[in-house]
Design a protein around this nucleic acid. Structure first.
Length: 474
DNA sequence: GCATGATCATGC
DNA sequence: GCATGATCATGC
């Protein structure tokens, strides 16, 4: 066997060799002949291994480049008006429910395989073949310590659900950065789980698409720092030693966002990111808007967004967006309760895209992707004097049974739009969690349909009664 | 008092 | 200019 064209024990050497593909496609570099004589099959990652790296992984459970500890990942980006963004989540190894729970994080299948990634982002273009995709970012990636801490907690949360015999109830929205996404041809790709007879959907570890956007954005800026291994140690210190330590990674340069947690030293022992967020709110429970604003010296103005500004102020993020929430795609929702504990208003979401929904599948739809997010609720309630006071905060994910209702609602909405019926959607009075209601500048604010006609802009809403129940039970 | 339709304020 | 989050207005 001919020697590989790089030092297979050295991540930097593998990266340097990979970088020769930058702004090129696989076909550009190895030529059409090599591809035509290739007898294997597979997607881009496989083709790269076979035809470009000429490297056969000698272990299935470990990283692709075993000697260097490097896992190769190809993942698509797409171009939008605001630049390049991730097209989809990054999918890691399938979760073996019967095995993974026996491990600690440090010797988990996830960590052993994915602690050092060679990421190859390519520009997805619908009409192109895999071999013609052009690579736009090629780089080694290690998780910054503050992110690794969250990822470890995410992993443990997934394991806890398996240990509780609830693998069938896993949801991508359960966790912050590391998700358990469905993986399989269809909903009948089921697997056994160790502590329940119920079959569970096959799932894989995955990184949220929004998290990838940060890697993408910061990679284009090419900023480097040296990783803080003391912080790594603090995260992993209750377990085995970390493997070989890696040299450099690219720092997230945060101009538009600001993290809640600046260093892993801010965590108490055993505390998760969510614990820490909730803890930050504790001293302000029961205080009024004005009292919180005075205490923290905030300057939120007098707008409709005041509750939002107060919540960010409490988290120490004043002007910018919350980095962790952006990367995890956590949806922060502030709610105002009346004295009685009910909500005056239902909760609105984005406008229904009439031209898009008609050809979408459920799991790629806006509504599915919104409802499977993790939510962070910040609840204010009016007191006897009608003064809004902070009541409670909590993280929440929609239970799977309500997602079934959501799918029915969405299918109903979609089929009406397909049939050119733009009224008669679910109403609040149907009492089925969701409804459709107008939302535009005014009643003359219209959106084009797939029929070429124009209809009033309408949005997805969650009924206030449902939100009220969530608040009561959390 | 609530359901439904309508519209405002802000930020990107 | 427009989408989003928030809220108002009307009528039953």
């Amino acid at each position: 066997m001919e020697p590989v064209p790089f030092d297979k024990t050295n991540p930097k050497s593998i990266e340097a060799y990979a970088e020769r593909l930058l702004n090129k496609s696989l076909k550009n570099v190895i030529g059409e002949d090599a591809i035509q004589t290739y007898s294997g099959k597979g997607k881009l990652g496989q083709l790269l291994e076979d035809l470009y790296f000429k490297y056969k992984p000698n272990s299935i459970s470990g990283p692709d480049f075993a000697e260097a500890g490097v896992e190769l990942k190809t993942t698509p980006i797409k171009e939008t008006r605001s630049g390049f963004v991730s097209k989809e989540r990054l999918v890691f190894n399938i979760i073996n429910y019967n095995e993974e729970y026996k491990n600690t994080f440090t010797n988990s299948s996830f960590w052993k395989k994915n602690q050092l990634l060679l990421l190859m982002f390519y520009l997805y273009e619908q009409e192109k073949l895999d071999i013609d995709y052009v690579f736009k970012i090629i780089r080694l990636w290690q998780f910054p310590a503050t992110d690794l801490k969250i990822i470890k907690d995410d992993w443990q949360k997934i394991i806890a659900k398996i240990k509780a015999g609830k693998a069938h109830e896993l949801s991508e929205g359960d966790t912050i950065y590391l998700g358990a996404c469905t993986k399989g041809a269809n909903a009948s790709s089921l697997r056994a789980q160790p502590f329940s007879d119920e079959m569970a959907m096959q799932r894989a570890f995955s990184l949220k698409s929004k998290y990838l956007n940060f890697i993408i954005e910061k990679s284009f800026r090419k900023e480097k720092i040296v990783i803080d291994y003391n912080e790594y140690d603090r995260i992993l210190n209750d377990e085995n030693a970390l493997g070989e330590r890696r040299a450099e990674y690219w720092k997230l340069n945060l101009n538009e966002v600001e993290p809640i947690v600046k260093s892993v030293n801010e965590y108490e022992i055993g505390e998760t990111f969510e614990d820490l967020v909730i803890k930050k709110f504790k001293p302000y429970i029961g205080l009024s808007h004005t009292e919180i604003i005075d205490t923290l010296n905030l300057n939120p103005g007098n707008s409709k967004q005041i509750s939002n500004a107060i919540a960010r102020g409490i988290l120490g993020v004043r002007k910018k967006k919350i980095e962790e929430f952006e990367k995890a795609d956590i949806e922060m929702k502030t709610v105002k309760l009346e004295k009685s504990g009910s909500l005056k208003e239902s909760m609105s979401f984005a406008q229904i895209q009439y031209k898009e929904i008609v050809s979408e599948g459920w799991e790629e739809s806006y509504w599915f992707n919104t409802l499977t997010k993790r939510f962070f609720f910040v609840i204010f309630q009016k007191d006897k004097e009608n003064v809004l006071r902070l009541k409670k905060v909590f993280f929440w994910t929609m239970p799977s049974k309500d997602l079934i209702t959501a799918e029915e609602f969405w299918n109903d909405t979609k089929s009406k739009i397909r049939n050119n019926h733009f009224d008669n959607f679910y109403k609040i009075s149907d009492n089925k969690i969701f409804h459709v209601r107008p939302k535009g500048a005014d009643s003359a604010d219209l959106m084009e349909t797939s029929f070429g006609t124009f209809e009033k802009k309408k949005s997805y809403w969650i009924n206030s009664s449902y939100i009220k129940e969530i608040i009561q039970h959390n």
